[in-house]
Design a protein around this nucleic acid. Structure first.
Length: 324
RNA sequence: CGCGGAGUAGAGCAGCCUGGUAGCUCGUCGGGCUCAUAACCCGGAGGUCAUGAGGUUCAAAUCCCAUCUCCGCAA
């Protein structure tokens, strides 16, 4: 069976490599990998290839990076490659109906949430930010709307209490790939299920905005903790640290819930209550009488470091405070 | 050439402006105290100060030049 893959980031690369490595077992022919065009990004506006492109090239899969998938040129490419199935994972563009209708077995999509929850661009981060304990991948037949297609299969992935997005993202990608390997044969031999989504239960997971990365210490520690780990290792939650009155922009890479018994009711939210370089903790007053221990930070111009190192090097002390 | 920060001991930092003994908080090693300890006391090892047989100087971590690497912002 001819399969065309479409995807862009690391999550998608995980799916593609699973397809590639098992192509002989299942008799698949990967006819191409479609990925977003390279764009000047990062420091100095260097062109950064997408993970899917890098992988595809390394194993010799043809790479296509159309600016638009809605024009004739892309349909012509489809006709040329003639895939029986299109597998999409975090491609980053909506596909027109003409494309969805082309393959014999349809277009399927690996989505990083248990649909109909968290439809959209950032399902994994949003689930973590909401403090969910369980999420999963869903494979759906793509439909016109955003992640509204009929469900074929899904898996279940538990979210650790102190796990961060990077770790969960990695596990989700691998789990999704396993699911994909089970699902495609079922589609091919006609035993796949097809269940419509209940739109009434749908929720949206929009992409992460910059403004959401700012920490508001009047929130309860749990909300802050969920936000910090959902944004780690990128783009990272940030705040301002006032050290001896001098402001310094700082990102928070990791945290754990603090001891609630030992809070200072009179302390303003954001105040550093105590530090322990050995335990690697900067304990901060948060809303509702809760406290949060920051365990890893990224000071401006520096890389990620343990809170203990930061305390030792910068001589952070109780009375310093976080806020804006 | 988008803007900016940074490279000093295993980690995190200071010193640089106003050149002249390599410093701080830890870690590590050895010893001591203690029922005991991540606590405390004493002692030690560990650094071509990113690179350049560069420039200036009697003398460069420090001033000047070039290169490399890392990072933040902006996209």
């Amino acid at each position: 069976m001819k399969i065309l893959f479409m995807g862009t980031p690391e999550f998608a690369r995980e799916q593609l490599s699973a397809l590639w490595e098992n192509r002989e077992t299942y008799g698949w022919e990967i006819v191409g990998a479609v990925s977003q065009p390279d764009k000047p990004k990062g420091r100095g506006y260097k062109m950064i290839p997408t993970p899917v492109k890098t992988y595809a090239q390394s194993v010799g899969i043809a790479v296509y990076q159309p600016e638009r998938v809605k024009d004739e040129a892309f349909l012509a490419l489809l006709a040329e490659l003639d895939p029986a199935l299109i597998v999409v994972a975090a491609y980053g563009k909506m596909l027109p109906e003409a494309v969805l209708a082309y393959p014999k077995y349809g277009c399927i999509n690996v989505h990083g949430s248990l649909l109909p929850a968290y439809r959209g661009a950032a399902p994994i981060q949003r689930a973590m930010m909401d403090g969910m304990r369980v999420t999963g991948n869903t494979i759906q037949y793509m439909a016109k709307g955003m992640d509204t297609g009929d469900i074929i299969s899904c898996d279940r992935v538990e979210i650790g209490e102190n796990e961060d997005f990077g770790s969960l993202y990695d596990r989700m990608g691998k789990s999704g790939a396993k699911l994909l390997l089970k699902t495609i044969p079922a589609i091919e031999n006609g035993t796949a299920c097809r269940t419509a989504q209940d739109d009434a239960c749908a929720t949206i997971a929009p992409k992460i905005e910059k403004a959401e990365c700012a920490l508001d210490f009047s929130l309860p520690a749990e909300a802050l903790h969920n936000r910090i780990r959902a944004l780690s290792p990128a783009p990272l939650a940030y705040t301002t640290l006032y050290h001896q009155g001098t402001p310094m922009r700082i990102k928070i890479a990791a945290s754990v819930m603090g001891d609630t018994a030992d809070t200072d009711a009179s302390a303003v939210c954001g105040t550093v209550l105590s530090l322990d370089a050995k335990k690697n903790e900067i304990r901060v007053q948060c809303g509702n009488g809760s406290t949060l221990c920051m365990t890893a930070v990224v000071p401006e111009g520096k890389g990620r470091m343990h809170a203990g190192d930061f305390i030792r090097g910068r001589k952070i002390a109780p009375g310093d405070w976080f806020g804006d």
